[in-house]
Design a protein around this nucleic acid. Sequence first.
DNA 1: AATCAACACAACCGCAAATTC
DNA 2: GGAATTTGCGGTTGTGTTGAT
Length: 263
Amino acid sequence: MGPPISVSKPQASGLRRGSWTPEEDALLRMCMEKYGEGRWCNVPQMAGLSRCPKSCRLRWLNYLSPRIKRGRFGDDEMDLIIRLHKLLGNRWSLIAGRLPGRTANDIKNYWNIHLSRKPPDAKGKAQTNSSTALVKVLKPKPHTISSLNWSCRTSLTKDLYVPKSQEKPAAVSIRPSSSPADQNHITCIESIFNSKDLSPIVSDHIELENAQADQLQSKFGVQASFEILADIDGRSVIGGPSAGWEDLHFDLNLWGDFGSILM
DNA sequence: AATCAACACAACCGCAAATTC
DNA sequence: GGAATTTGCGGTTGTGTTGAT
């Protein structure tokens, strides 16, 4: 879409709404360059904008951020979206985390326009792919780091305020579990593991501690050598280079699912 | 040229989780 | 521990653009 044309009027509260003007974009951009992301409630004041904090955040994250990749989705991206949506459901932020430069809003829009309304045969060949066809859409409750008793949280915003030295994962307690919910998680995660061609989502990798890798090995019957990394490019991931699912990475939310299995 | 439908995407809203006080 | 505030997410809407008729 081209530059905004409609003009918003100040609300009774004095806050502007509607499309952003180039001037407002410039102010927000300068503010982000100067102060960085975070403390959105202070951004309107710091930037000299008559916008609510949510509006500023949305504008930056969905439009102005230099990390955003513009342009049409490629076939590989479309395929990946279909696969990840099958696994994760409408968890756009998680899906976006696996598509560098794409925002949750972009993906949501794209899905709603292109993919959600097409008949199954037209949704892409990936849907018939054996590695994902058997998987039910899973919507696990996101496990935050804090809920896992980890001392870090992994948004970019947090990175600006938490010293790296504090972002050290604490020990993960391990206990057997065989509840249906956990079995569901296992099915999901196994399906991810078995999907070998998700390499486009790869960015970097991290290692699990040996004890945790051993637990995964006994649980899934795979030889695992992982690394845990608190932060890669503003996002936390885990990866496993030696189990046949090399170059595969997840958000720590999914690591939370590991935790629920192992705990 | 006019009209209409579909597309593309920015923006808002409400809610819940997380954080702060 | 609880209330208030902040942040993040998903759903939805609004509007400009594009292409077909």
